[in-house]
Amino acid sequence: MNVIIRLLLNALAVFILAHVLDGVTVNGYLGALIVAVVIAVLNILVKPLLIILTLPVTLMTLGLFLLVINALIILLADKLVDGFGVSSFLTALLFSILLSILQSILHSIFKEKKKPQ
C-alpha cells in the first residue's frame, strides 16, 4: 500500500511541476501517473547501470554528475511516454531537481507515523 501512495504523490509532484515549468507538458493526472511509474521503473532498471558506467566522472565531480543522470532519466521518460514532453536538457535538469525537492516535501507531509512498540 505504501508503494501506491508514493506513486500517487510522485504523480502529484509531476502534475504540479508540469503546470509550473514552461518547458514541461503532461496530459492530465493520468498522464502524470504514467510518467511517475515510468520514472520509477527507469530509476530501478537504468539508473544503477548509468551510475556504474559514469562512476569516474561522478567521483571527480563529487556526485554532481548524478544530477545529469537524473536529467537523462527524465529525457528518456519523455521519449517513452506520449503524453509527457520536456523541451530541453536544461529544462529536464531543472525539472529533476524540483521534482526531488517536491517529492521529499510531499513524502514528509504524508509520512506514516511509527507506532511505539
Rank of each mutant, 00 (worst) to 15 (best):
I74F: 09
L7D: 06
K113N: 12
V46T: 09
L64C: 02
L45M: 14
V86Q: 03
F84S: 00
L55R: 00
D22L: 13
V86P: 07
V46H: 01
Q117L: 13
R6L: 13
V46A: 10
F95A: 00
S100W: 08
S104G: 12
L17M: 01
Q117N: 15
I73W: 03
V24A: 00
I51L: 12
K111S: 14
V3G: 12
L102F: 03
D82G: 09
I16S: 00
F110R: 03
I52F: 09
H19M: 08
R6M: 08
S88D: 13
K79R: 14
S88C: 10
I4S: 14
A13M: 14
L62I: 14
V14K: 01
I52A: 15
L62M: 13
L9N: 03
V81Y: 05
V46N: 05
L93P: 10
K47C: 07
I16E: 06
S96K: 00
L9E: 03
L80T: 07
N10Q: 12
L45H: 06
Q103A: 13
I5E: 09
L99K: 04
Q103F: 09
D82R: 13
H107Q: 13
I39A: 01
T91V: 10
V24L: 11
K114N: 15
F110C: 10
I16D: 04
L75W: 03
F110S: 08
L21W: 01
P116I: 07
L72W: 10
T61D: 12
Y29D: 04
P56L: 10
M60S: 11
V86G: 05
L106P: 00
V24F: 02
L93I: 04
I34S: 03
V24S: 01
K115Y: 11
I51D: 07
K113P: 12
N2D: 15
F95H: 00
D78G: 05
F110M: 08
I4G: 12
K115T: 11
G63Q: 03
G23A: 00
P116G: 06
G23Y: 02
K79I: 12
L45S: 05
L9C: 04
Y29M: 11
K113G: 09
M1W: 05
T91A: 04
E112P: 08
L33Q: 02
F84Q: 02
I51M: 15
N43F: 05
